[in-house]
């Protein structure tokens, strides 16, 4: 046994992705849904690092792109939370099931 292989990491990040997807589908609080999105993004970043480490250790892309993922995730979280604040001022709750004022 010489440590975990690429498959271990891929299976792990597939499971993490599915957990995040489940959260996105079931949670009703918008903030909790955004936290699930963060889980999905982290699973993707882990895939980048794992492929870089096991398959292309001489190539640089896998080392750099997770940094971009983190930066974009931070920007996305900030914008989404600002939208949530505006929405909360407007309707006093963050429940997606009740935010149906555009429904025809």
């Amino acid at each position: 046994m010489n440590g975990p292989t690429l498959e271990h990491y891929l299976v792990f990040s597939a499971l993490l992705f599915c957990i995040g997807l489940y959260g996105m589908l079931t949670r009703r609080n918008l903030i909790a849904m955004l936290m699930s999105v963060e889980l999905v993004l982290n699973a993707a970043a882990l895939n980048f690092v794992a492929f870089h480490h096991f398959l292309f250790p001489g190539d640089s892309g896998g080392a750099v792109f997770p940094i971009f993922i983190i930066a974009v995730a931070a920007a996305e979280a900030a914008v989404a939370l600002a939208i949530f604040i505006a929405l909360f001022r407007h309707q006093q709750h963050l429940d997606v099931q009740q935010s149906d004022s555009l429904k025809g």
Binding site: L10, A14, F54, P57, G58, S60
Partner: peptide, 17 residues
């Protein structure tokens, strides 16, 4: 993933973060 066959790592100068 169970059908995945990965080659052993290509030898190269590791970048390693």
């Amino acid at each position: 993933l169970s059908a995945l066959k990965t080659q052993p790592p290509a030898v190269g100068a590791p970048v390693e973060g």
